[in-house]
């Protein structure tokens, strides 16, 4: 019917990748770990704090500042080839003694592996809430890291444009997914509404936007001058 150029190819998995199967009867703790965990231990001896296998998923707790290097290696090394970043997020526990964990979920499409990397950020006031950005390795990390910053206040060093993404930029009630943030927000409903309505819906519809996106230099000279002179456009 559809004389279409659709081709059905069997997939790009490596020949020695395990045959996929629905996981069953996973143990709570233990079980076979992802082989990449041992490889990481061998390669970055001091930087791997511990490895846990929970419900069949391998979590590797790593040193905060070493993370960027490790992700780059996982991405590039031909025996690992973690080419797909599933997710970047964070977890804060109800117990304030427990550290905030930043979580990366990586997939190796050729070897059909799934790996979870974690970085502990203790809430002791001494450790900065900052981890290296993996944007240089995975372009897909851009918005996920922005969201993590927006919701938890965790900074990603090296991210090109770390702004709020879901909440508006003048939002100053705090970081909503932190445990000290009440479900209904810090302010009364009327105050929240007042602040929301005070926002100008056209606020970002302007050439200033471009300065944020590092595009200002590309504008024509005459236009740059006028903008620097304080002219507002688009409103």
């Amino acid at each position: 019917m559809s004389g279409t150029p659709i081709v059905v190819i069997p997939g790009s998995a490596a020949p020695d990748a395990p045959a996929p199967a629905t996981p069953r009867h996973l143990p709570n703790r233990g079980g076979p770990a992802n082989p990449s965990a041992d490889a990481l231990k061998a390669k970055f001896a001091g930087a791997v704090q511990r490895v846990e296998v929970i419900w069949g998923e391998t979590s590797v707790y790593v040193e905060r500042l070493k993370l960027g290097e490790m992700v780059q290696w996982l991405h590039d090394d031909p025996s690992q080839r973690y080419d797909y970043l599933s997710d970047v997020t964070a977890v804060e526990y109800r117990d304030p003694e427990q550290p905030i964990e930043v979580v990366w979920h990586l997939r190796s499409l050729p070897y059909r592996r799934f790996l979870r990397l974690k970085v502990d950020l203790p809430l002791d006031g001494k450790t900065p809430l900052e981890v290296p950005s993996v944007w240089g390795v995975y372009k897909g990390a851009d918005w996920m890291e922005r969201e993590c910053y927006d919701m938890f206040g965790i900074r990603f060093a090296g991210h090109p444009d770390l702004r709020r993404i879901l909440m508006w930029e003048q939002y100053h009630e705090g970081f909503p997914l932190r445990k000290d943030f009440p479900l209904r927000g810090r302010f009364s409903r009327a105050e929240q509404l007042r602040q929301a309505l005070a926002a100008n819906p056209e606020a970002r519809y302007s050439m200033e936007e471009l300065t944020v996106a590092q595009a200002f230099e590309d504008l024509p000279e005459a236009m740059r001058k006028r903008l620097l002179g304080g002219e507002r456009t688009g409103e």
């Binding site: 109800r94 117990d95 009440p182 209904r184 009364s188 409903r189 009327a190 105050e191 509404l193 309505l197």
Partner: peptide, 29 residues
């Protein structure tokens, strides 16, 4: 809008209308 608060109906009315109802909004340890 009310020039002072910028709202269209009184702030007390908004707060009263949006009182939590039913499900818990508190989280315990």
């Amino acid at each position: 809008p009310d020039p002072k608060s910028g709202l269209y109906i009184p702030a007390q009315a908004i707060d009263e209308l949006s009182e939590p109802f039913g499900n818990s909004v508190h989280q315990t340890r």
